[in-house]
Design a protein around this nucleic acid. Structure first.
Length: 492
RNA sequence: GCACCGGUGGCGAAGUGGCUAACGCGCUGGUCUGCAAAACCAGUACUCGCGGGUUCGAUUCCCGCCCGGUGCUCCA
């Protein structure tokens, strides 16, 4: 099964296959670590996670490199405000970033590259550009890329260069560039500012050069796929292409994938709109990381996703249904044998799932056969027509689904505990939703004890007491389910 | 202004030139249950923004319009 993925560069759906026939080499732009990540950031990382997980599910080997921008204007500004060097400022946000990725079950790339650890490679690249006449130094010591030296500029974003020039606002600090469109490769610094002493002078790197230098370092001069948020297409990726290809004269990446921005409540997310959420904000409001994951990946990556709390509730309920089903499937005792209709349904669901995913990662479409199978299996179980041999077939389909979606496997309580611990440590307890505190108030042992007491009361047909316990638990966010195999409980 | 994307049931969201317009959530009724929960069954868009056109036939293709969003500037 080969993935057909929309390629920004070609403007059409192309099959995504490794050029060397063995391993898919991909580069994805990572975070700038000046603050906690917000859900917009995470939508992009989640969609890239969906991509790499699906590729792996189809048996492909993946080498995925992600950069971390740990030096830029915002970082320098924030670190200065905090009165510490950037090397002390960024680690806490890098750590937080990975904690958040873990919470959202975003797999780690095979390699992670920090900008500040690759300054030498960037300088080297700038020197090579200068040797080609594609880079020049201005009076204050800064280096710029000469756009005139790269006629193909704009091929990714299909930009009309003349239009850009007309519409471009010229940065007052950059008045001595040859052309308004030329962009910074290396920025000179004033004494006391974060800088590196290098053969091309004292200064710090421009933003775009790090990705060119590091992708070359880890993936070579030309690789299979480059991915990122849609906003990066221009100018960031366009500039990367200009920098890399001016030196190598080879395509930087054959395939380009761009994830659409998300909206929050129908508006672009921004701090001034008051609709800006970090992952941590949502966890403290009581939403589960799994629900956030599902909500963010259920709309295909090329579509605008409107993020709402209603959407999170929907995702929460959908996950609940999947997990309840999984639990029923795993814990029920079935008669030996197999049933033909279930075997057929399981195979059909699996095929439909793969086919939807292979069609430009259509996650919305891929969900459907899973829920179809769920209903078919539940119906069979209700009618006593489900056999032990069917269990593995259905579980296998769920496993394939979860190899990409990863929401059936439950780890939310543990994540919630961590979020609460963080809130305390960060002094943000006031933001914790009361329902969340209630939900976590009882330990598993306390819940088990009450459940046992209720079962006892039921045996004695003391339904008053039994219902009282059930109500008490429900008030604390614990839902009970009676079944032939005993009582199951879960936190809402 | 230029460019791009979208407008499908109460909400989210697939999809196709012609089979009953997926799937999820929600809601209503029913079955099951001591009662619930879970699950299942039934109902919930005679219709896919509006107006033209192409076609034997369009939600799906073309044109125009309206509405929403995004990009053109740091931004996932």
């Amino acid at each position: 099964m080969t993935l057909r993925l929309f390629n920004t560069l070609s403007g059409q759906m192309d099959e995504l296959v490794p050029a060397d026939g063995a391993e898919l080499r991909m580069y994805a732009c990572g975070p700038t670590v000046y603050d906690y990540g917000h859900i917009g950031n995470f939508r992009t990382f989640l969609e890239i996670d969906v991509l790499r997980r699906f590729l792996k599910l189809t048996g492909m080997r993946v080498r995925h490199v992600m950069n971390i921008t740990d030096v830029d204007d915002k970082i320098i500004r924030n670190a200065a405000a905090a009165g510490i060097p950037i090397g002390e400022y960024t680690p806490r946000y890098i750590e937080a970033f990975f904690e958040d990725l873990d919470a959202l079950r975003v797999e780690r790339p095979e390699a992670i590259a920090r900008a500040t650890e690759h300054i030498g490679k960037m300088v080297e690249l700038i020197q090579r550009l200068a040797a080609n006449g594609a880079a020049y130094q201005v009076e204050d010591g800064s280096w710029y890329f000469r756009l005139a030296a790269f006629p193909e500029y704009g091929k990714l974003s299909k930009k009309d260069l003349a239009g850009i020039e007309d519409g471009a606002r010229v940065d007052l600090d950059e008045y001595d560039k040859d052309s308004a469109r030329d962009f910074a490769l290396w920025k000179s610094t004033k004494p006391g500012e974060t800088s590196w002493e290098t053969p091309i002078g004292r200064g710090r790197p421009g933003w775009h050069i790090e990705c060119s230098a590091m992708s070359m370092e880890y993936l070579g001069e030309s690789f299979d796929l480059h991915a990122g948020g849609e906003d990066l297409m221009f100018p960031h990726h366009e500039n990367e292409i200009a920098q890399s290809e001016s030196v190598t004269h080879k395509p930087l990446a054959r395939h380009w994938m761009h994830v659409r921005f998300l909206l929050v409540d129908g508006r672009k997310m921004s701090k001034s709109e008051g609709n800006f959420y970090t992952l941590r904000d949502l966890l403290l409001k009581g939403y589960k990381a799994s629900a956030i994951r599902l909500a963010l990946i259920s709309v295909p990556y090329r579509h605008q996703l409107n993020f709402t709390f209603e959407g999170l509730t929907e995702a929460t309920n959908a996950i609940d249904r999947l997990r309840t089903f999984h639990q029923r499937l795993s814990t029920t005792n079935f008669e030996a044998g197999e049933s033909e209709p279930i075997q057929v349904a399981a195979h059909a669901a699996r095929a439909a799932f793969f086919s939807a995913m292979a069609n430009d990662l259509n996650t919305a479409d891929a969900r459907a056969p899973i829920f179809d199978l769920l209903r078919t299996a539940n119906t069979a179980m209700d009618r006593g027509q489900f056999r032990a041999g069917d269990r593995d077939a259905v579980l296998q389909v769920l496993a394939d689904f979860d190899a990409v979606f990863d929401v059936v496997r439950d780890g939310d309580d543990e994540l919630t505990r961590r979020a609460l611990a963080w809130a305390e440590q960060a002094g943000r307890q006031a933001e914790v939703a009361p329902e969340l505190l209630a939900r976590m108030a009882l330990s598993d042992e306390e819940i088990e004890k009450l459940v046992a007491e209720r079962t006892q009361a039921k045996k004695q047909r003391n339904f008053g007491r039994a219902d009282q316990i059930r109500k008490e638990l429900l008030d604390k966010g614990v839902v009970l389910e009676d079944s032939k195999e005993g009582v199951r409980w879960k936190r809402k």
